[in-house]
Nucleic acid binder design. Structure first.
Lengths: 221, 221
DNA sequence: ATAATTTTTACGGGAACCCGTATTGGCTTA
DNA sequence: TAAGCCAATACGGGTTCCCGTAAAAATTAT
């Protein structure tokens, strides 16, 4: 049974609606944290008092604001939380819609559910929590839709590494040494050229500039 | 006095928290619409019954979902709403953080306030509504921060024309003929080169790719 | 282990880009 | 009108990028 929930979320408005939704399904013990570091400390503290959380509801993206934080993403928070409390259930509530990111959450971080901030997110949250309560993973409806239309090209971390370097003003011919320094393989200039050609071909683009513009437009880099 | 509010927002969770916040400041008449088309119809209907809205709170980005809509952005909704009811107050509540987008809202659509979905957005919403109630425009705090770090250089329409062509995949050497076709002067290749060099010099950039990335990042193109 | 296949890297010629200099064209002023 | 000035354009050589082919390395299969 899920009674004690920790919410890690920096948007005040999201915490308000989460409170309302959790009220409606009868959850009484809710704690809010606006920073990942605080959330982690709270988990640690609850364990030490023998009153640990049943569920962590967390966003993925936390905005920087002046004070430096050790952890600043939902992914890291989940990772650290699982070290402290391996059986803790985790429900991610975020606006992220990139398939690869969500797949990683399920496969690598083994989250129990994902609800995207979108139409009917409140209803979906309730269903997700119900499922998790029954020890079942919850897979969101929109994820299924995304899996169907998987014709869209997914940018790999290699693609993004190259595109990021380009967008930072690194010359194409210098990219190999940067890749090597970061331990990314392959790193040959030909591989970089080939990849850029492929990406342009794939999207019917003609120039690097157009490719960079596209990636910026859609938040890929 | 603001008594009757229309909310155009597709995220269910956002409407829940908006309801809570508006309850707390004593607003009683609230209507929710999950699509721009419905929101516009609602405004029209309210006017025809002589009971028009005092304030429109709207998101900017509405997600497509199957059924086709005539209008699908907050910007268009505001524009159409102002045609129907010019004195209608407008408060935008969105996650958008691009300075140029927000500036356009204030300057071109003459909105009365902008609150970004972020830390302390609930508190900010209350303040914004109070200000608007006093017939004053509300400028968000984070906008001021952005304005401070604003790039000193103002991009001219000539700059933007070139950068836009580049971002659309037009080769540098072909840009002159496009400029001529659009009646833009100067149009020589040397002038294009000179301008791109100047822009890169100005921002301490090395490549066109970096320049395009920057312009996309800050919504210049 | 060897062969087959794929992936990665190396190389080279031609196109596009970068950048400095020279020329042209339009505008102001004497 | 002519001289002077500034912006726009034209030109040329050096660099980088583009793109096809070939060699090398890594992976998989036999």
């Amino acid at each position: 049974m899920i009674n004690k929930i920790l919410i890690a979320e920096d948007h005040e408005m999201s915490t308000i609606s989460l409170q309302k939704v959790l009220d409606e399904i009868g959850v009484t013990q809710i704690e809010y944290m606006y920073y990942c570091d605080d959330a982690l400390a709270s988990i640690r503290h609850a364990i030490s008092r023998g009153n640990s959380f049943d569920l962590l509801i967390t966003d993925l993206c936390f905005e920087m604001d002046g004070q430096e934080q050790l952890i600043n993403s939902g992914q890291e928070l989940i990772q650290e939380a699982r070290i402290l409390q391996p059986e803790l259930k985790v429900l991610v509530f975020s606006a992220e819609s990139k398939l690869s990111t969500i797949e990683k959450l399920y496969n690598e971080l083994e989250i129990d559910g994902y609800v995207r901030k979108a139409r009917n997110d409140a209803k979906e949250l309730k269903i997700a929590i119900e499922e998790i309560e029954k020890n079942q993973r919850y897979y969101p409806r929109h994820l299924m839709q995304l899996l169907k239309q998987k014709n869209v090209y997914e940018f790999t971390s290699f693609d993004i590494a190259i595109l990021t370097l380009l967008s930072e003003g690194i010359r194409q011919k210098d990219i190999p040494e940067y890749l090597q320094r970061q331990g990314i393989r392959p790193s040959g200039l030909s591989s970089v050229e080939k990849k850029l050609n492929f990406l342009k071909e794939e999207h019917k683009f003609t120039t690097n500039e157009q490719l960079i513009a596209f990636c910026k437009e859609y938040g890929i880099i």
